[in-house]
Design a protein around this nucleic acid. Structure first.
Lengths: 199, 199
DNA sequence: TCCGTATTGTACAATAATGTACAAAATAAA
DNA sequence: TTTATTTTGTACATTATTGTACAATACGGA
């Protein structure tokens, strides 16, 4: 059924992801994308329709391999806080190990947001989804007795979202792993999400 | 001494600031800048030499009117925590009141940073300066007895920087003033930077 | 008034990017 | 082998953008 695609779509998507991640959505032109993917602009438009559509695919892929993905895999009844802490540690490790200082693709994209929806709309949703997920997790943790019964879960979820965003952003300037983790640990401890002597 | 400038440099700088703020550094072209400022590109290059130089001026101006400016005005001996809390509250007010959801110019610019110093270098310095300032303030607060003597001031300074960054970023998606402030208050209280019943 | 000097408008040449159109190429199925 | 179908390369017309060059302009000071 027609001529098959000459390039590896998965590989191309990876390349696109790195470019968007490194340079930002707006700053990554179709010409540059196509060239990096090793295809012509013609094939690009044929395969992805538009830069925005491709970005949607990229974000979808990013979500799957992002370090906070572990939070999605938490099932009812399982302890939450250890996974949460591990995620923060993982983020410190990943960000400080990245020689490109790319930070987090989602956070970078949120920063690009303007009121007028020039930028892809799903970025907003992705962020809101993160806040919602934190809220669910924190509620579950409270209900499971991992957090005090009188915990303000709304506020805590907000704090987690803000702090996580901030750490990801900060990692573009502060590149020392120890310093990042120390900051995270302090945050986690002061919110009783981990105890001092863990690790 | 030559023909005088036909346009108001202060006014033009303001216009440029809004544009950079709203659309980001990279996405704001000289053409658009010059047009918005009401001058020709010719005059633009004559007056500012380059977009990067202008951005330097813009950041300088921004720093002066930014909500965290109050922290610079703290002199020895004065209490620190009330001012710190007031700043967070001010930021919630400002960000939620901004119909353009611009967030913070510095934070937006940090998000644009790549490893290769394409972007103006002073952005990095500006962020580092913020961390340093938090460290000095926290140290002073501890020495003044506003914080416990065994406070890990490095970690706390990092937390403040990360959280503040995150709140500014988050304000581009979460626009409800109450929700933002609730998050900040929770953060401040859990770090003993304010007491629950303040405001 | 006239001169020096800095700003301005217009022009230029070059590069980059956009989206579309169409013919050539390559394969699966008939 | 032929046909239907999809990808691919090339081309096109358009619009942005860049930095520089140069002459025209306007004002302060002599």
């Amino acid at each position: 059924m027609g001529r098959p695609t000459q390039f590896d779509k998965d590989e191309a998507l990876d390349i696109a992801m790195i470019l968007f991640w490194k340079n930002g959505y707006e700053a990554t032109s179709v010409s540059v994308l196509a060239a990096a993917m090793g295809i012509t602009r013609s094939s690009f438009y044929n395969a992805y329709e538009s830069r925005e559509k491709l970005f949607g695919l990229v974000l979808h892929r990013y979500k799957k391999e992002a370090p906070d993905g572990v939070l999605t895999e938490i099932t009812d009844g399982k302890p939450i806080l250890p996974t949460l802490c591990a995620m923060f540690r993982e983020i410190c490790d990943l960000r400080s190990a990245d020689p490109d200082r790319k930070g987090c693709l989602v956070i970078n994209s949120v920063a690009e947001l303007g009121k007028d929806a020039e930028a892809p709309p799903f970025v907003r949703d992705l962020f809101s989804a993160m806040v919602d997920r934190f809220l669910r997790l924190v509620r579950q943790a409270r209900d499971q007795g991992e957090l005090a019964a009188d915990t303000d879960i709304q506020a805590l979820a907000g704090e987690l979202a803000a702090f996580l965003s901030g750490i990801n952003l900060m990692s573009k300037v502060i590149t020392d792993r120890q310093q990042l983790w120390r900051t995270c640990r302090s945050f986690l401890v002061s919110h009783k999400l981990m105890v001092e002597d863990d690790v």
